[in-house]
C-alpha cells in the first residue's frame, strides 16, 4: 500500500521537527563542549560542565530547594485540588458554571503579574518568610493543572458507583479512599507529574518570591548567566530537560502521553 505524499508536506514536517528538536540539540551540544564559553557545534567532548554544576555550591543548594518546593507544592495542590475537583464534578448541576473557571484563573493571569502581586501583598505586606511565600506561589500556579487533570478523569467516573458502595455500608469518607481514589489513580499520577514539572521549571513566579539565601535552580541559572557565559548554563538546562523527560517517560509508561493531550 503506497500513498502519494506531497513533497511540500514532507518539507513542512521536516521544518517543524527542526524547529522543535533543533534548540534541544544545540543546548545538548553546547553542554558537552570542552570550551570555557558557549559554542555550537561543540569543540571537544567533555562532561566537566556537568561536574561543575555540583561543584558550585549555589547550584547544589538550589537543586535541592527546587526539588523540595516542587514536591511540597505538588502535594499541597493535590490535597486541595482533589477534593475541589471532586466537589466540582460531583455537584456540577447544583454549582454555578463560573466556579470551575475560578479555579483555572491562576494560569489565566500572567504569571509575572501574579508573582509581583504575591510579592507586594504577601511577602512585603505581611513580611511572610521567603520559603513560605515561594511555596504558596508555586502551590497556587500548579493547582489549576491538578484540578483540570483530576476533573478530566472524574468526568468519566460514574458517581452511582460511589452510591453503590455507600449503600453496601461503606461510610462516605472511606468510600472516597477505597472506591473513588483507586478509580482516578491515573489522573492523580498525571496531575502529580504535570504539577511537579510546572513547579520545577517555573521562573516568573519564583523570580519575585526568591530572596536572600533562597533560590530555585532556574533563578540561580539566570543569576549565573549574568556573570558567566560558560557551558554550565547549557548543562543545567540539559539537567532540567532530563528531569522533565524522565518524568514524562513515567507518564508515558503508566498512561500514555495521549492522556495529557486530552
Amino acid at each position: 500500500m503506497t500513498r502519494n505524499i506531497h513533497p511540500l508536506l514532507i518539507a513542512g514536517t521536516v521544518l517543524v521537527f527542526m524547529f522543535l528538536v533543533g534548540p534541544l540539540i544545540i543546548v545538548l551540544g553546547a553542554a558537552l563542549s570542552d570550551t570555557t564559553y558557549l559554542t555550537f557545534p561543540p569543540q571537544g567532548l567533555s562532561l566537566r560542565w556537568f561536574e561543575n554544576i555540583f561543584q558550585i555550591d549555589a547550584f547544589r543548594r538550589t537543586i535541592f530547594t527546587s526539588l523540595q518546593i516542587a514536591l511540597l507544592s505538588t502535594v499541597i495542590a493535590l490535597i486541595i485540588g482533589i477534593p475541589a475537583a471532586y466537589a466540582l464534578n460531583r455537584h456540577r448541576i447544583q454549582l454555578p458554571g463560573w466556579l470551575s473557571t475560578l479555579f483555572i484563573l491562576p494560569v489565566l493571569v500572567p504569571e509575572l503579574v501574579l508573582g509581583f502581586s504575591l510579592l507586594k501583598n504577601l511577602a512585603v505586606q505581611f513580611n511572610s518568610p521567603i520559603y513560605l511565600s515561594l511555596l504558596f506561589g508555586h502551590s497556587l500556579i500548579v493547582l489549576p493543572y491538578v484540578i483540570r487533570v483530576i476533573s478530566a478523569s472524574l468526568a468519566s467516573f460514574d458517581f452511582s458507583i460511589e452510591e453503590a458502595a455507600i449503600s453496601l455500608g461503606s461510610p462516605p469518607l472511606k468510600t472516597f479512599f477505597t472506591i473513588l481514589l483507586p478509580n482516578v489513580r491515573s489522573g492523580v499520577i498525571a496531575a502529580f507529574i504535570l504539577a511537579f514539572i510546572t513547579s520545577i521549571n517555573d521562573v516568573s513566579i519564583s523570580i519575585f518570591l526568591t530572596g536572600p539565601g533562597l533560590s530555585t535552580l532556574p533563578i540561580q541559572l539566570l543569576a549565573h548567566m549574568e556573570q558567566f557565559f560558560d557551558p554550565t548554563v547549557a548543562s543545567v538546562s540539559v539537567l532540567l530537560m532530563l528531569l522533565t523527560v524522565a518524568v514524562m517517560a513515567v507518564v508515558e509508561r503508566t498512561l500514555g502521553l495521549t492522556f495529557l493531550a486530552k
Binding site: D158, S160, I161, E163, A164, A165, S167, I179, P182, N183
Partner: peptide
C-alpha cells in the same frame, strides 16, 4: 440497591 448502569466497582 441495583442500579441502571450496574455501578460495579471497576477496579
Amino acid at each position: 440497591l441495583v442500579f441502571q448502569n450496574y455501578a460495579l466497582f471497576p477496579h
